[in-house]
Protein backbone atom coordinates (compact mmCIF):
# COMPACT_ATOMS: atom_id res chain seq x y z
CA UNK A 1 0.00 0.00 0.00
CA UNK A 2 1.13 3.55 -0.60
CA UNK A 3 2.18 5.80 2.24
CA UNK A 4 -1.03 7.82 1.80
CA UNK A 5 -3.21 4.74 1.97
CA UNK A 6 -1.41 3.56 5.12
CA UNK A 7 -1.86 6.99 6.70
CA UNK A 8 -5.54 7.02 5.82
CA UNK A 9 -6.04 3.62 7.41
CA UNK A 10 -4.13 4.65 10.54
CA UNK A 11 -6.18 7.82 10.84
CA UNK A 12 -9.45 5.97 10.47
CA UNK A 13 -8.30 3.54 13.16
CA UNK A 14 -7.32 6.46 15.37
CA UNK A 15 -10.79 8.04 15.11
CA UNK A 16 -12.54 4.74 15.80
CA UNK A 17 -10.26 3.92 18.72
CA UNK A 18 -10.74 7.35 20.21
CA UNK A 19 -14.54 7.07 19.88
CA UNK A 20 -14.38 3.70 21.60
CA UNK A 21 -12.41 5.12 24.54
CA UNK A 22 -14.97 7.91 25.03
CA UNK A 23 -17.93 5.52 24.84
CA UNK A 24 -16.24 3.01 27.15
CA UNK A 25 -15.50 5.68 29.75
CA UNK A 26 -11.72 5.23 29.38
CA UNK A 27 -11.12 8.95 29.64
CA UNK A 28 -7.53 8.83 30.88
CA UNK A 29 -6.58 6.66 27.93
CA UNK A 30 -8.34 9.22 25.72
CA UNK A 31 -6.26 12.03 27.28
CA UNK A 32 -3.11 10.15 26.23
CA UNK A 33 -4.17 10.57 22.59
CA UNK A 34 -3.99 14.37 22.91
CA UNK A 35 -0.92 16.53 22.35
CA UNK A 36 0.18 18.77 25.23
CA UNK A 37 -0.80 21.85 23.21
CA UNK A 38 -4.26 20.50 22.34
CA UNK A 39 -6.89 23.08 21.35
CA UNK A 40 -10.44 21.77 21.69
CA UNK A 41 -13.35 24.02 20.74
CA UNK A 42 -17.11 23.74 20.24
CA UNK A 43 -18.29 27.18 19.14
CA UNK A 44 -21.75 28.61 19.80
CA UNK A 45 -23.82 28.87 16.62
CA UNK A 46 -26.69 31.19 15.83
CA UNK A 47 -29.22 31.21 13.02
CA UNK A 48 -28.07 33.64 10.34
CA UNK A 49 -28.97 34.39 6.74
CA UNK A 50 -27.19 32.22 4.16
CA UNK A 51 -24.90 35.06 3.05
CA UNK A 52 -23.43 35.22 6.53
CA UNK A 53 -22.27 31.64 6.47
CA UNK A 54 -22.61 29.05 9.20
CA UNK A 55 -23.40 31.47 12.04
CA UNK A 56 -20.38 30.55 14.13
CA UNK A 57 -19.80 32.93 17.03
CA UNK A 58 -16.11 33.72 17.32
CA UNK A 59 -16.05 34.74 20.95
CA UNK A 60 -18.33 32.28 22.67
CA UNK A 61 -18.06 28.52 22.81
CA UNK A 62 -19.64 25.54 24.50
CA UNK A 63 -16.14 24.19 24.97
CA UNK A 64 -12.86 26.05 24.64
CA UNK A 65 -10.33 23.79 26.23
CA UNK A 66 -6.64 23.24 26.66
CA UNK A 67 -4.78 20.31 28.20
CA UNK A 68 -5.35 21.60 31.76
CA UNK A 69 -9.08 22.08 31.45
CA UNK A 70 -9.64 18.72 29.73
CA UNK A 71 -7.63 17.06 32.51
CA UNK A 72 -9.75 18.91 35.05
CA UNK A 73 -12.94 17.58 33.45
CA UNK A 74 -11.60 14.02 33.56
CA UNK A 75 -10.35 14.37 37.15
CA UNK A 76 -13.81 15.66 38.08
CA UNK A 77 -15.37 12.46 36.76
CA UNK A 78 -13.07 10.56 39.11
CA UNK A 79 -14.44 12.32 42.21
CA UNK A 80 -17.40 10.78 43.96
CA UNK A 81 -19.55 13.83 43.27
CA UNK A 82 -19.70 14.13 39.47
CA UNK A 83 -23.47 13.79 39.58
CA UNK A 84 -24.01 14.88 35.98
CA UNK A 85 -22.23 11.74 34.73
CA UNK A 86 -22.57 9.35 37.64
CA UNK A 87 -24.44 7.19 36.86
CA UNK A 88 -22.86 7.76 33.45
CA UNK A 89 -24.74 8.53 30.27
CA UNK A 90 -24.68 5.73 27.74
CA UNK A 91 -23.07 7.34 24.71
CA UNK A 92 -22.24 6.15 21.23
CA UNK A 93 -20.04 8.14 18.87
CA UNK A 94 -20.84 7.35 15.22
CA UNK A 95 -18.02 8.67 13.06
CA UNK A 96 -18.49 8.84 9.28
CA UNK A 97 -17.62 10.74 6.08
CA UNK A 98 -13.93 10.93 6.98
CA UNK A 99 -11.78 13.08 4.67
CA UNK A 100 -8.06 13.57 5.15
CA UNK A 101 -6.15 16.58 3.92
CA UNK A 102 -2.36 16.88 4.26
CA UNK A 103 -1.02 19.99 5.99
CA UNK A 104 2.73 19.33 6.29
CA UNK A 105 5.13 16.44 7.04
CA UNK A 106 3.80 15.99 10.55
CA UNK A 107 0.19 17.14 10.35
CA UNK A 108 -3.04 16.23 8.62
CA UNK A 109 -6.43 17.84 8.78
CA UNK A 110 -9.25 15.33 9.22
CA UNK A 111 -12.91 16.11 8.62
CA UNK A 112 -15.51 13.76 10.01
CA UNK A 113 -19.23 13.71 10.68
CA UNK A 114 -20.29 12.80 14.19
CA UNK A 115 -23.60 11.52 15.45
CA UNK A 116 -23.53 11.35 19.23
CA UNK A 117 -26.21 9.31 21.00
CA UNK A 118 -26.82 9.91 24.72
CA UNK A 119 -29.17 8.08 27.06
CA UNK A 120 -29.47 8.68 30.80
CA UNK A 121 -31.24 6.86 33.59
CA UNK A 122 -34.14 4.52 32.96
CA UNK A 123 -35.98 6.96 30.70
CA UNK A 124 -36.38 5.58 27.17
CA UNK A 125 -35.86 9.11 25.81
CA UNK A 126 -32.46 9.94 24.36
CA UNK A 127 -30.59 12.91 22.97
CA UNK A 128 -28.88 13.08 19.60
CA UNK A 129 -26.22 15.60 18.65
CA UNK A 130 -25.02 15.90 15.09
CA UNK A 131 -21.83 17.74 14.19
CA UNK A 132 -18.93 18.11 11.82
CA UNK A 133 -15.51 17.73 13.42
CA UNK A 134 -12.41 19.33 11.99
CA UNK A 135 -9.34 17.78 13.60
CA UNK A 136 -5.63 18.35 13.26
CA UNK A 137 -3.66 15.17 13.88
CA UNK A 138 0.08 15.18 14.54
CA UNK A 139 2.43 12.32 13.79
CA UNK A 140 4.62 11.68 16.86
CA UNK A 141 7.02 8.95 17.98
CA UNK A 142 4.10 7.54 19.92
CA UNK A 143 1.82 7.47 16.89
CA UNK A 144 -0.90 9.92 15.83
CA UNK A 145 -2.11 12.45 18.40
CA UNK A 146 -4.97 14.90 18.36
CA UNK A 147 -3.56 18.45 18.28
CA UNK A 148 -6.76 20.40 17.59
CA UNK A 149 -10.44 19.72 17.31
CA UNK A 150 -13.24 22.04 16.29
CA UNK A 151 -16.75 20.66 16.57
CA UNK A 152 -19.41 22.51 14.60
CA UNK A 153 -22.76 21.48 16.03
CA UNK A 154 -25.78 21.27 13.75
CA UNK A 155 -27.96 23.08 16.28
CA UNK A 156 -28.28 26.58 17.63
CA UNK A 157 -30.16 25.79 20.86
CA UNK A 158 -28.54 22.70 22.38
CA UNK A 159 -31.21 20.01 22.85
CA UNK A 160 -29.55 18.16 25.75
CA UNK A 161 -29.54 19.37 29.36
CA UNK A 162 -25.77 19.86 29.56
CA UNK A 163 -22.59 19.07 27.73
CA UNK A 164 -21.04 16.83 30.33
CA UNK A 165 -19.93 14.59 27.46
CA UNK A 166 -17.07 14.95 25.00
CA UNK A 167 -17.23 15.05 21.19
Amino acid sequence: MSRTAVDALEILNFLHHEAHLLDAGKFNAWLELLTDDIRYRVPVRVTREREHGPGIIDHMSHYEEDRYSLEMRIKRLETEAAWAEDPPSRTRHFVTNVRVEPIDDRHVRVYSNLLLFRSRGDSPNFDLLSAERVDVLRRTDGGWKLAAREVVLDVSTVPTHNLAILF
Binding site: H59, M60, T157, T160, H161
Partner: peptide, 12 residues
Amino acid sequence: VIGAPHRWMIDA
Protein backbone atom coordinates in the same frame (compact mmCIF):
# COMPACT_ATOMS: atom_id res chain seq x y z
CA VAL B 1 -21.94 40.88 26.49
CA ILE B 2 -19.23 38.86 24.78
CA GLY B 3 -20.42 36.80 21.80
CA ALA B 4 -23.92 35.40 21.98
CA PRO B 5 -25.78 33.66 24.81
CA HIS B 6 -25.55 29.95 25.43
CA ARG B 7 -28.99 28.41 24.86
CA TRP B 8 -29.93 24.91 25.90
CA MET B 9 -32.93 22.87 26.97
CA ILE B 10 -33.45 21.22 30.34
CA ASP B 11 -36.35 18.93 31.20
CA ALA B 12 -36.85 20.92 34.37
